[in-house]
Amino acid sequence: MSEVLVLIDHVDGAVRKPTYELLAIAKRLGEPSAVFIGSADQAAAATEAVTKFGAAKVYTVDDTEIKGYLVAPKAEVLQQLAEKASPAAILITSSAEGKEIAGRLAIKLGSGIITDAVDVQADGDTVVTTQSVFAGNYTVQAKVTQGTPIITVKPNAAAPEEEAGSGTVEEFAATISDGAKTAQIVASQPRKATGRPELTEAAIVVSGGRGTGGNFEPIEGLADALGAAVGASRAAVDSGWMPHTFQVGQTGKTVSPQLYVANGISGAIQHRAGMQTSKTIIAVNKDDEAPIFELVDFGVVGDLHAVLPAATEAINQRKG
């Protein structure tokens, strides 16, 4: 069975949920092999975490030589691993960094690349992906026809599959060229923690738009009751009610949660492009002709300032 390389997405050794989702997908395609690029003292914890979710093998790469540089060195690490292992596919989280790593890697390997997949399946020896394209108007299936398939996958594309077992560990010493060590991070500042899930990774997203009138308290209250992330439409962001990092849409972030709740959002195509691959969609809007209702699984015609506090209270009562 051919290996499927999965690049571990982590923060200081703490493995992020999309990696576990990629491992579940990798099992469909071959033997999951995780790749950890980070500090040597963090490798053991990351290895233990990914083996619990199906990694049969873990390659650990000490990043002492490349720490602080941008993505080019990681692409070279994956290139050298791919040349060694001849994997059936390489899976990477579909983040800004992940897509840049994938693009550089595709050039180095002379391989095809597919980005923003929402599903990946095996069709015999072929890897077939599903994507939402052209501002979400079409769902297409695609496959790589040259080289090793390099695929970036959106968070929430699969359910993590925890299992008992242990994987082998191999330390891999990559040779990084001087050309890959040109752009370097000279300063960074941690983002202020909100206590809520990361927007692109959250299983539930509660968003607000123009209909909030700038008052996001009902949105945040429902989000906290559900353990959800908070999102916003472009209209809300352009009005200065929420920072741009909260924007969901074609010019913001693309999300694909299990549940998306749109409140006071009309449903313009630019917003729909960023959320319509969500598994279940609920909308609250007092305009019963709002375009968002064409897309939803459940719709509530009403004032979000009345509906959401009532829903939040009911949820909190059921929780206990």
Results as ranks from 00 to 15, higher is better:
180 A>L: 07
180 A>M: 11
181 K>M: 15
182 T>Y: 01
182 T>W: 00
183 A>T: 14
184 Q>V: 13
184 Q>R: 15
184 Q>S: 02
185 I>E: 03
185 I>Q: 08
186 V>D: 11
187 A>H: 12
187 A>Q: 14
187 A>L: 08
188 S>N: 07
189 Q>M: 12
189 Q>I: 03
189 Q>F: 12
190 P>I: 06
192 K>V: 15
192 K>A: 15
192 K>P: 00
193 A>L: 10
193 A>F: 01
194 T>I: 12
194 T>P: 12
194 T>N: 11
195 G>D: 07
195 G>T: 06
195 G>S: 06
196 R>V: 10
197 P>N: 08
197 P>E: 03
197 P>F: 07
197 P>V: 03
197 P>A: 07
198 E>G: 01
199 L>W: 08
199 L>V: 13
199 L>C: 12
199 L>E: 10
200 T>R: 13
201 E>M: 14
201 E>N: 14
201 E>W: 12
201 E>V: 13
202 A>C: 06
202 A>Q: 01
202 A>T: 04
203 A>E: 15
203 A>G: 15
203 A>C: 02
203 A>I: 00
204 I>H: 01
204 I>V: 15
204 I>D: 03
204 I>Q: 02
204 I>L: 03
205 V>Y: 10
205 V>C: 10
206 V>T: 09
207 S>L: 04
208 G>P: 02
208 G>Q: 04
209 G>P: 12
209 G>M: 12
210 R>M: 08
212 T>I: 07
212 T>A: 05
212 T>F: 03
213 G>A: 09
213 G>C: 10
213 G>Q: 06
213 G>V: 11
213 G>Y: 05
214 G>D: 09
214 G>P: 07
216 F>S: 05
216 F>H: 03
216 F>A: 05
217 E>Y: 00
217 E>T: 15
218 P>T: 07
219 I>V: 14
219 I>T: 02
220 E>Q: 13
221 G>I: 02
222 L>S: 02
223 A>N: 09
223 A>T: 11
224 D>M: 01
225 A>R: 09
225 A>N: 11
225 A>W: 08
226 L>Y: 09
226 L>Q: 06
226 L>F: 14
226 L>A: 11
226 L>P: 04
227 G>K: 09
227 G>E: 08
229 A>E: 02
229 A>Q: 01
229 A>T: 05
229 A>H: 02
229 A>D: 04
230 V>K: 04
230 V>T: 13
230 V>H: 07
230 V>N: 09
230 V>E: 08
231 G>C: 05
231 G>R: 03
232 A>D: 10
232 A>Q: 04
232 A>F: 11
